[in-house]
Design a protein around this nucleic acid. Structure first.
Lengths: 129, 129
DNA sequence: CCTTGACCTTCCAGTAACTGGAAGCACTAT
DNA sequence: ATAGTGCTTCCAGTTACTGGAAGGTCAAGG
């Protein structure tokens, strides 16, 4: 398979796949013409990566997950630990965003949003506390 | 005021303040010895920036907000529009994170997390759908 | 046989917003 | 004089791609 087809089937841009090869996440063969020649297994790996990335795992986490996936002697505890930590990070991020949202929403509500310069949002940003 | 003191009072690392000068967000005077000499107004600006950044506005948004703040003829509608758009983006991000969280949480729950290799998390990442 | 267009290649640069570190000058206290 | 802290500039690295240029390859059509 050439990169275009793999890209379509894995749901990743070709650019991204080349990048993944650069950083050693996949190692496709090469055809005589120099084109990358992907196996079904490469495709499978890339789809795995696409899903892991979609769940917000970093590239390095993905590398680890892929390693675990291919390691027959893995312990599921290791996978779960990684996933749980990531879950915690997601929760923390959500909490942060919620706080931002609450603060900003209050300011936005207080703002008339008309042609006058008077603006509680700017005041809120300018004042301490 | 030297950069160290401003950093402390604005709640920003000195490095960040230098960066903000680089990109033209503040323009402190210079003392004869070459040190940056910040006015109270500079400090005020930096504190404004720190709060806007803490609410998740991008640097370019901050630049715009600062411009509006200093423009006596601004219309609060412009500020409100910017803030509302940002609010929408925050909501969207929260929604995305919640979806990630839900999916991943299900997988994590299903995983024993013991010494055996059997792992629903990896299976979930490997399977389509 | 030639051309056109789609697809592939590599390489370089840019994104966002800093952050770390090196080399070196300035100031304060001893 | 020296030690220590704070300041300066400049360069590189971070994350995960993304865009674009310059050019090779391949299949189809005239």
């Amino acid at each position: 398979m050439n990169i275009g087809q793999v890209a379509e089937r894995a749901g990743l841009p070709a650019k991204t796949i080349r990048y993944y090869e650069d950083i050693g996440l996949v190692r496709p063969q090469r055809s005589e013409n120099g084109y990358r020649a992907f196996s079904e297994q490469d495709l499978h790996k890339l789809a795995f990566l696409a899903r892991a990335r979609a769940l917000g795992f970093t590239i390095e986490d993905c590398r680890t997950l892929l390693g675990l996936y291919e390691d027959e002697a893995r312990e599921s505890a290791d996978v779960k630990a990684l996933a749980t930590e990531h879950l915690d990070q997601i929760e923390e991020k959500i909490a942060q965003l919620r706080e931002m949202h609450a603060t900003l929403a209050k300011l936005v509500e207080a703002c008339h949003g008309d042609h006058r310069p008077d603006c509680p949002i700017l005041q809120g940003l300018a004042e301490e506390g």
